[in-house]
Design a binder for these strands. Structure first.
Lengths: 385, 385
DNA sequence: CTGAAAGCGCTAACAA
DNA sequence: TTGTTAGCGCTTTCAG
């Protein structure tokens, strides 16, 4: 039998409750337990669907559930986390949440988190490895159950350490050197090849690359794939400029190319933020796109097709990258399976628009067929990229 | 005197430690306490800079600090939160993190959080009041110390309730009806007036508005200010179409205006995401901007000036909005002052570019002087809006 | 100047 | 079928 009077817990020390005025006292497990004349443990089990396992009387379970609903009981996630070492939270760290690409990743990860009943901690590393290290540390000590990381990508020791400590972690977009970590990213090399093939087929011979942050995986794969394809197709070297995934870098790189290699007939720009800078420079110098310089830009964005000329781009499945990364993280969280360090490569598409043409010409005469997509509606709702 | 042997805490039940292989055991307060032969309480006080208040021997404090550093001790924020009811976390809820406007808000709030030693919980309400309510509830029960909310803006009861429960909360961008909550937002009415003045001065008479989500504060303020200025300046009614801050709404509204009011010579578009849709529709219908339709768009974005024609926009100080909202939140968190429900209005600017001209003309002949900014470099680094 | 002990709200091991 | 107890890691009375 159960005792029929439960002592009020001693409130001698902690002078809480109505003093601080914080609304009416929080409903806790103990509130329920006392009102139902049950032990907190029983209530806990009933609430957690452990009724069957512990063979709690169905009636009891029902009473518990009922009162819980009536009082609007919500378990305290912090207490639970402290006890169980699982916080039902995940972390997302990106190099720049203001960048539409990562904002879109965040959007899909946030969506997945919510659907799985997790909260999302957001960290912005501002493309600094030091900040990234700090942020990851903070999140780890906050007991996030897992992480999606779009790393800065220049150093990876802190990330590997974190992953080896047993915390599920999935990389997105930029991978890191020793491919021991699960990662979801675009097929950057494919993008590089598509760009090279298109320009080669249009008859370009002297071309340049405006790159992003050297040393990062997307940058290297895009550049190298383009260069090696170009070497094979055209047998010419490729000029390279640029130093960051930024507007400023785009401006400087464009000035640089115009000065050092004024005879280039096409540029492959590895980042659409930089591309903005590059295009402005071309305008200032009175160079016509595509007549003087053809342009292929990595990564699409909603305005690409509205620009004059519209941009030919390599389109990444941004939303899918985020979604898949989150899915894989939640798989890990559910199965506690050992993280297969598989790299998932999502296909890119070449979207052909007006910014490319044969050298010296203002438009493509006959549509090439390179498995490309004739540019049009690729973007729609809610300003997302 | 202190006892010189401290008993190992009983590890009978919790089979933790090395079994699960989770790296080496976490160093806790007790680890330190035992190795220093002190009570956990003393260590806690030393670590929390309470040494002075409790007059702990300076030597002791030093020893504690030293060992803590040596062992890389990091307090467990969850345990602390459970005990102190402050989590050192804040929440940010936005209607759409994929929208560059809110991504930029998120960027500045994330930055502020980090600088203040807080972590940031991110919630995306997807412009749904229900989701917003859920998200806010989740965050509240996670004990966030405070919130920055960019509400959907159609209903506010849940937000007011939350705020009245004593949790510091600052609104950003969209306010909510009973102006009892602190809020940081742009001066939307000023933007509406500037737009009206410009179009009036250029000689337009029949104009229309493509609005965003009706009933939300920015939408109503922009629209009403425009309409009332227009009435005063021109004495004509203003056509209105549109139903959301989305691309699709922009498309539909534009089709709608063209069909119902084909004689309009200028459109004021209250959302730059919708504007993209509107511009595409104009193109499809072969209407020239600005000759057939002049265009003013609310909210700038990096590509506005690269478009052909470049967009005349009302520019909001997005980053400042986020920064100020966060600052005000942290003021509240520090001072525990009662939240002054002041509404902070940040000025907007009219940036004059090529998408406006006198009716039937293709460009502005003589620059007007309306306190406007002649369009140019307003955007730069890292693809942020 | 320091320690013992209580307890934040919950869950898990063990006991009955 | 349920209760008792211990304890997650920390802070905070209260008692020296």
């Amino acid at each position: 039998m159960k005792s029929s009077i439960r002592p009020e817990p001693s409130r001698k020390r902690q002078g809480a409750s109505s003093a601080s005025g914080r609304a009416r006292a929080r409903v806790t497990l103990e509130t329920l337990a006392r009102r139902l004349d049950l032990a907190p443990a029983t209530v806990s089990r009933a609430l957690n669907g452990q009724g069957a396992r512990y063979r709690i009387a169905p009636g009891t379970v029902r009473r518990v559930l009922e009162l819980a609903r009536k009082l609007g009981y919500r378990p305290n996630p912090l207490a639970r986390a402290l006890r169980t070492h699982t916080s039902h939270s995940i972390g997302l760290v990106v190099p720049d949440i203001g960048n539409p690409f990562f904002a879109e990743i965040a959007s899909s990860v946030a969506d997945a988190a919510r659907k799985n009943g997790y909260v999302l901690l957001l960290g912005d590393s501002q493309d600094s490895t030091d900040l990234e290290r700090d942020t990851l540390g903070t999140m780890a000590e906050r007991n996030v159950d897992g992480l999606v990381v779009c790393p800065v990508g220049l150093e990876s020791k802190h990330i590997c350490t974190l992953a080896r400590s047993g915390r599920p972690l999935v990389l997105a977009d930029r991978g890191v050197a020793p491919n021991q970590l699960p990662c979801v990213t675009a097929d950057h090399a494919q993008g590089g090849r598509l760009a090279a093939q298109l320009l080669a087929r249009l008859g370009h011979r002297r071309v340049g690359i405006i790159q992003g942050l050297p040393g990062t995986l997307p940058n290297e794969e895009r550049r190298q794939a383009f260069e090696s394809a170009w070497k094979q197709l055209v047998g010419q070297p490729v000029a390279v400029a640029g130093h960051a995934f930024s507007y400023e870098s785009g401006v400087e790189a464009a000035e640089d190319l115009l000065r050092r290699f004024p005879d280039l007939t096409a540029w492959f720009v590895l980042c659409n933020v930089s591309a903005r800078g590059a295009v402005e420079v071309l305008r200032r110098h009175g160079r016509n796109i595509p007549r003087d310089v053809s342009l292929i830009v990595f990564d699409d964005q909603p305005f690409s097709e509205l620009l004059e000329p519209s941009w030919t781009v390599i389109q990444q499945p941004v939303r899918d990258i985020g979604r898949r990364a989150a899915e894989r993280l939640f798989d890990l969280l559910r199965n506690r399976a050992k993280p297969t360090p598989t790299w998932e490569r999502l296909s890119v598409r070449l979207v052909l628009r007006e910014s490319v043409a044969p050298p010296g010409q203002s438009r493509i005469i006959e549509p090439t067929s390179l498995g490309t997509v004739r540019g049009s509606k690729a973007h729609a709702s809610r300003g997302t990229v």
